[in-house]
Write a protein that binds this DNA or RNA. Structure first.
Lengths: 249, 249
DNA sequence: CGTCATATTGACTTTAGTCAATAGAAGTGG
DNA sequence: CCACTTCTATTGACTAAAGTCAATATGACG
């Protein structure tokens, strides 16, 4: 972990505010409060956990740069990725209510995480009801994404699940300005994709090959290109409503 | 649907308050506010939807009696149950932030549902920060349950998933006083259990038989008895931490 | 008593998992 | 720049969990 306390708060919360404003405008005083709420910023390497299962954290984590994941580890060592977080996401807003974390949070790529003390969140609920509701909305979207994943896990084939995630990431990343030419950074390994969907690495590999064969996906290195978003969405049975985005595909 | 406006608010919110107090005491004024927030109470028959996918509800639903489920239906008609709600649960607290419901809510047994206008929830965020945080905590527990289901869907066998759910329901129902002699009402059909886990009815049936054969489960009609909770929990790999209950198994 | 939903059983199929080997890529230190 | 290690991706052969289809039983209820 690397500490970095000198960056301006403004760029830190830019993407979060952009996201929250999909719900309601965030006036200058709330923006200022959020900016000032960041106690520190830390950097982590891929694979590094910055919140551990069982912890009782005193601060919540805001992703500023890079990708992070919420992960549960079963007694037998098998892992399940519960959520993938991108810049602008509060990855454990809920943790401020929980006594013990039921899952950990790890960096998927090198990433920069802003820490907001729970005391500041409490203060928001005391003094800034509008912002409280905006964060509530963010929690609700987070839960909606989780539900969509749940449907995938229960009812969709490996092929559909992976196609669906690629669509979801396209929209989420686009909404924070991280997609260019239908291309975005996507640092998950095939093993991690398997952990997200409860699939074996082998099966993930074969499914990705199928998607590439059908020209729905081009991947080079850790970046992904979606040549035909509409076709991918159709193949995936993807309906973006749950994301609370108004974006067209 | 049947309307019923005459019941005292007090018994309506008893179980909710009991639950919220696991987080923080709920003083009389907050209790009174909640009581008064109930605009009406409705009754529904098994299978009846009281919130539909795509709705923009103006009120949230508190389960007073009976079981309800949050359900997503895929274009091909396949259903996925996202959550099972019991008395004392707010089943769509999050809906007040969402513009469109990404899932519906249906009665699993005959049930009695108290309706709380979203305006009242907004008022809570304006005037009762403590209660706001308690509800936030409730949302967080809800999400934790969803995550645990997600792990099940991804990483547990049918056998473990079903055993796990039986443990979860035992604790949740006990925490609201609905378990007696290790026995509780459990109105889900085998088809509905399948919808919850993404399993076929046939496979659910065979799995239940296995659990009964091993004397981990006794079921008569719509009631379920867990003769040996510890053994079931071991078989299920069940760790109750995520429920935020201090109950011993 | 008949109807409808629910539960059970058997035979066969499919999806995805496991094991094991190989190939590529990225990163490190000399 | 190269040899070396290590992680990641790919392939093949075989297995197992769970699905599908179809028939039958059981139970609740008007």
């Amino acid at each position: 972990m690397t500490l970095n306390k000198t960056l301006p708060g403004r760029t830190m919360i830019k993407r979060l505010v952009r996201k929250l404003e999909r719900f309601e405008p965030v006036p200058p005083n709330e923006r200022a409060f959020l900016k000032a709420a960041i106690a520190r910023v830390a950097e982590y390497d891929p694979g590094e956990y910055f919140v551990n299962e069982g912890d009782s954290p005193a601060e919540s984590c805001l992703v500023v740069e890079g990708f992070a994941a919420r992960i549960k580890t079963l007694p037998n060592g098998v892992r399940q990725i519960m959520a993938i977080h991108i810049p602008g996401d509060f990855c454990d807003l809920h943790s401020f209510a929980l006594k013990r974390m039921d899952h950990g949070i790890a960096a998927l790529s090198r990433c920069k995480i802003a820490k907001v003390p729970h005391a500041k969140l409490t203060e928001i609920t005391e003094r800034l009801p509008r912002l409280t509701r905006a964060l509530w909305w963010d929690l609700a979207i987070d839960a909606a994404i989780l539900r969509e994943w749940m449907v995938g896990a229960g009812r969709r084939s490996a092929y559909h699940q992976i196609a669906h995630l690629l669509c979801e990431m396209l929209l989420r990343l686009r909404s924070v300005g991280l997609v260019e030419d239908n291309t975005y950074a996507f640092p998950l390994t095939q093993a991690e994709l398997g952990d997200a969907f409860g699939l074996s690495t082998v099966h993930v590999n074969r499914t990705l090959q199928a998607l590439r064969r059908e020209h729905l996906l081009i991947s080079k290195g850790r970046a992904v290109t979606i040549p035909n978003a509409k076709a991918l969405a159709t193949a995936a049975g993807f309906d973006p409503t749950y994301l609370g985005l108004s974006d067209v595909l």
